[in-house]
């Protein structure tokens, strides 16, 4: 269907698994990382169409990672979806200010995530 590549960043292996299954089933190519630092390392030189990132992660948290992505000349226009247990409005605004395009609270419906991915990749 599509060969769009999505970078999935989450320290929870189970969340990566749930999201990864949904994205792969929908035809996306998924690259996984367990934290922001690992993600930055893995994405270098790769064509990434969209990023899904957790907020609270060890080593490098999601907001810091998001800011790094937005500073990167190759990825500053890559849409980023934050996928987190954080549901507070202040956290959402922090993500928005850092450049996130959407905010999904865990637990999430995989279809809602796929709809958001589809919408942002086409935008």
């Amino acid at each position: 269907m599509t060969s769009k590549r999505i970078l999935l960043v989450d320290d929870s292996a189970s969340v990566r698994k749930v999201a990864g299954i949904a994205l792969t089933s929908a035809g996306y190519n998924v690259l996984e990382a367990a934290n922001g630092q690992e993600a930055l390392s893995k994405m270098t030189g790769e064509k990434i169409h969209l990023i899904i990132s957790d907020v609270n992660m060890p080593v490098m948290d999601g907001i810091t990672f998001l800011k790094e992505v937005k500073r990167h000349p190759s990825y500053k226009f890559t849409p980023v979806i934050m996928l987190t247990t954080e549901a507070g409005e202040d956290k959402k605004q922090e993500g928005r200010a850092a450049g996130a395009k959407a905010w999904i609270v865990k637990p999430f419906q995989p279809q809602n995530m796929l709809d958001a991915v589809s919408k942002l990749i086409l935008a």
Binding site: A87, K101, W103, V105, D115
Partner: peptide, 10 residues
């Protein structure tokens, strides 16, 4: 109980 929520778009 925490239920799945709608996606917030910015």
């Amino acid at each position: 109980a925490v239920e799945p929520q709608a996606v917030t778009f910015f």
